[in-house]
Design a binder for these strands. Sequence first.
DNA 1: GTCTATAGTCAGATAGAC
DNA 2: GTCTATCTGACTATAGAC
Lengths: 199, 199
Amino acid sequence: MTKPITKKKTRDEILELAVPLFAKDGYDGVSMRDVAAATGLTPAALYYHFNDKEHLYISVVINDFTGKSTVLSDIIKGPEPPWERLEKFIEGLVNLTASDQNFLRLMQWVKLDSDEVRQHKLAEYVFSDLFVSVHDLVAELNSGHDAYMLAISIFGLITFPFESMTIHKFMPGYRPEHDQPAVIAKHVIKLLRSGGKIQ
Amino acid sequence: MTKPITKKKTRDEILELAVPLFAKDGYDGVSMRDVAAATGLTPAALYYHFNDKEHLYISVVINDFTGKSTVLSDIIKGPEPPWERLEKFIEGLVNLTASDQNFLRLMQWVKLDSDEVRQHKLAEYVFSDLFVSVHDLVAELNSGHDAYMLAISIFGLITFPFESMTIHKFMPGYRPEHDQPAVIAKHVIKLLRSGGKIQ
DNA sequence: GTCTATAGTCAGATAGAC
DNA sequence: GTCTATCTGACTATAGAC
């Protein structure tokens, strides 16, 4: 209150600058020295702000996810009819995934985390709210599908193309348009609307 | 030819015993000491069989995938009508993914590999044949969808529930049946047949 | 073909000065 | 709040004996 906040606090800067590191190489692939180099601090200085490497990592992931998922949840809870909200959500998550590679990769690392306690903690913060929102939305659709399984399918349809993009880019039949968010969103929506048999 | 092969060669044993290690913790999470301990060898002995850690890792992944994808490709190339072959393929990949956790996790690690050269090499060996088979099959369906995108969607629908299983297990609405391969396969097939609107 | 021994580097973390 | 200096252990990889 007495001090004007003219620049971001060191801790917040660490959290932001460490995101691309952990997104690229994961927990085991990033050393405290790497984070120190990226932030312009010494390794020792990091231990003033975080108890240990694990606390730093968890803070980085949670900090990066907070806010992003609430934007999507708000879309889902809008006043439009269910199908319309679902389409807007799909477009929103596709755009987020396409524009923020770090977000996507951090999610992938969480899924592969072999520390169960850490994974559970991250899942709680990162996925829970958004999953419940989507689950409740698809339950409204009365699609005849199990809402829980349909929600998972929707997340898979949206994120998988981006998760595997670096790989399927080399497969025969690839065209640049396959990477465009609008094209992917449209494809997912069409598939969900009518399945594989549309004509 | 002159020597009777009574027991598996050391190299093959290393390749098999290292699979669960790399599947669980990934390339950076596994040390040569870990592999040595799992195989009953000394770290130095590993360097007789493999040039370095990277060669060992690549050999482990390729060795684990070889054969598994050809079984699935054979299903796809059967004499039945396209939709029937697709359903059999879905059941096959679901069962493989469900019964062989190592297979699934190694795939996930490949998708996150930050070494582009290594990733490209693995993608070539691991995904290429199977992806092309599925692509050509869905092209036969005349579904109105882009075959390339539909193929990716199918892989996503099948593998994503298993990739995220450790996480969505904690979400509200979870029931044990959601993990059963037969239930997942049925759901994916239904979704592809008719989309979200089935009634 | 597998070992012992070890080189050389890098990791996470701490103590104490400023 | 950030530093220098350092500890301790783990890492990949090699040299050379058996």
